[in-house]
Each structure stands twice: as C-alpha cells, then as structure tokens.
C-alpha cells in the first residue's frame, strides 16, 4: 500500500505510522468528560470510506489526513493535517 504524501509524493506505508480515525475532534478540557470519553474511546469503524491520521515518520514528519477505503484499501486522497506555514511552501 502506498500513501500519496502531499509533501513527499507517493511512498510505501512502511514509512508511516498509523493513528486511526481522523474525524473525532478533541473537546476543550473542563467539564467535558462524556465528550472526552467519546473522543478517546468510541469509533464508527466504518466499512468503506475512512478519513484517518497517518504520520510520515520516515519522511517529512507531517501528520496527514488520508482518505482510504477500509474494504478495498484504495486511497483516493491525502492532505496535510495542518497547512504549511507561510514560507514552508514546497
């Protein structure tokens, strides 16, 4: 499987570290116990299209949001989780 890293180009998954579903958003801290529980523990775990976090640990060290199909493993797209700062442009 290969991931089209927006910064480095198409690379083997051996260069990346997987984290998981990119859709849960970390809630702001205090008084958010239920929301934090859902963020940390509950997953849709879909069969099909999945937006997920991958870290290009042996490349540019960017965190990516990769769209991948969990049944076919096809990867239609990938983007940087955080846009590059001005002046960091490739």
């Amino acid at each position: 499987m290969r991931i089209p890293c927006p910064y480095c180009g198409s690379r083997d998954i051996g260069e990346f570290v997987y984290r998981g579903d990119a859709s849960p958003v970390r809630p702001a801290a205090d008084g958010a116990e239920a929301a934090m529980f859902a963020y940390v523990y509950l997953r849709d775990n879909p069969m099909g299209r999945h937006e997920e976090h991958w870290y290009h640990t042996q490349g540019c060290r960017n965190w990516l949001v990769v769209t991948r199909d969990t049944l076919t493993h096809e990867i239609p797209s990938a983007r940087l989780a955080a846009p590059l700062n001005a002046g960091d442009a490739v």
Binding site: R19, H53, Y55, R61, A81
Partner: peptide, 12 residues
C-alpha cells in the same frame, strides 16, 4: 510523534 500530533492536529 506525540508532540507533532499535538502541534499540527490538536492545536495547529
């Protein structure tokens, strides 16, 4: 990896 996640995903 954790620091990079925090600065680019949690608090960009």
């Amino acid at each position: 990896q954790h620091i990079d996640f925090a600065r680019s995903v949690l608090w960009p």
